[in-house]
Write a protein that binds this DNA or RNA. Structure first.
Lengths: 258, 258
DNA sequence: AAGAATTTTGACCAGTTGGAAAAATGTTAG
DNA sequence: CTAACATTTTTCCAACTGGTCAAAATTCTT
């Protein structure tokens, strides 16, 4: 128990799925693994950021790396993760990995910026012209599904936040703020028409983020507390049901009518 | 922006209050800084864990270190933090720090175990014989206050969770689970008597944790989104007010009666 | 003030880390 | 087949890491 050997310190070392060929790093739809490997075209690496089209092979390798990096970064954060670790999970040598991403920061930046886009999609999708309550309910549902299906992305984000969002603070302050401002206005509009209860739209959004992401970020705790019987896959369903009630009617005041 | 010099990487480097004499490391009531320095008694260090009484000077130094370590660990996590960093924040040399805590892990362990005790106090304090709704409301209020007053402790905890709670998994699985089980039963009892709405007690507790700790763990985000006008100290008051409404009546269904 | 105990420091170490260079090994177009 | 390019591996390095140790400085006791 007291045998931290500097390398591979925590019990939760990410070494699960190692470099599964076409592992998708981001949350985009998986490529439906069935296409045969077409002979790779001219790559021309070392100029990744320049203008070259980027061959399929390169893209695949990068995906493997990003996938591995997500495993590692999402657990240990940027500073707590090492290139060696990522390389090992990705199943390649460190210099080979550095051939695709010249510096550690590059991998992280890619991960983070790709994340931010997809992470906010559900919020962006809230339709001002839709039916208020169904819109919000489906938003909550989608966020819970993301916590279930993309916990690593959630943790990567959480790690970044805990550190003060050093790499994305400007995006947070501009893009995210603008988006939330916009949606807050939508919510206020709905409140004005009496379609939903009047409340603080910002804190409403915060509480949806908090409650849903909790199931990804604090997964260990959730499972431990729920125990063997209730900690299985069904926990997300239970959570969704509970959150429905929480946001719809609250969970403290007993029902007025029997 | 791309000038990570390996040392001091993130913008949010903790270097705020450096070793303020009697900085209290844990959340216990501050010693009401007024007592004159009584002449320190015989310390006898290097045997910290043994049986010696531990002089006041030693306790003060350890507090300074723990305070600094909390600054650092809460941001970068265990692996992402370095002894040098902590020593610098604590305003002492690394060997000097190691004189008080022979290994990095020792500091972290102390921090974590002290944390766990106080962190759960509010939950522990929920009184089965109290008035249900006030009990829960004051629980929520206390948790929000903790997020405001002890954000570093919250982040330290969050960091640990994100990594799979490697250092406290057994405490989580036993002590925490037992406590939550107990309080869940209390809640269920209240539901049985119709004092509060019937709902899932475990997820109710999760949602309180999530919503309150969010204001500490995702503080950067919260402040950025709220902007200059609303992101000030008042945000915790607003949050408390909002959460009150959320848990009491929900925030979606418009009020039945005008 | 002297001796004893404690605290602090400076030098040092072995292992790790991010990364560079270049040689070695594919791969492919002609 | 071979030149030209892409990829991978080997070797290497300087800075950083957690930690040791003995000497020096300080503090305490008497």
């Amino acid at each position: 128990m007291a045998s931290i050997k500097v390398k591979n310190d925590g019990p939760a070392s990410p070494r699960k799925r190692a470099a599964n060929g076409a592992g998708a790093a981001s949350m985009k739809a998986k490529p439906a693994a069935g296409e045969a490997d077409k002979p790779p075209a001219k790559p021309k690496a070392r100029t990744t950021g320049k203008g070259r089209p980027l061959t399929r092979i390169q893209r695949e390798k990068q995906d493997i790396i990003l996938e591995a990096a997500l495993d590692v970064f999402s657990v240990y954060g940027f500073r707590g993760s090492t290139i060696d670790q990522i390389a090992e999970v990705a199943g390649m040598s460190k210099p080979n990995l550095l051939y695709y991403f010249p510096r550690k920061e590059d991998i992280h930046r890619r991960l983070i910026s790709e994340l931010l886009v997809t992470w906010l999609e559900p919020l962006r999708d809230i339709d001002a012209d839709g039916d208020p309550i169904p819109e919000i309910r489906s938003y909550i549902r989608r966020k819970i599904e993301m916590a279930r299906d993309f916990p690593r992305e959630s943790r990567l984000f959480a790690n970044e936040m805990l550190q003060g969002a050093p790499h994305i603070i400007d995006m947070i302050e501009v893009d995210l703020k603008n988006l939330v401002d916009e949606k807050a206005k939508v919510l206020e509009g709905w409140m004005d028409t009496g379609k939903i209860a009047r409340t603080d739209p910002y804190h409403l959004i915060f509480s949806i983020w908090a409650t849903t992401q909790h199931y990804a970020d604090f997964d260990v705790q959730v499972r431990a507390v729920l125990g063997r019987d209730r900690g299985g896959e069904g926990r997300f369903e239970d959570a969704a049901r509970y959150l429905e009630q929480l946001f719809m009617t609250g969970v403290l005041m007993p029902k007025k009518r029997a």
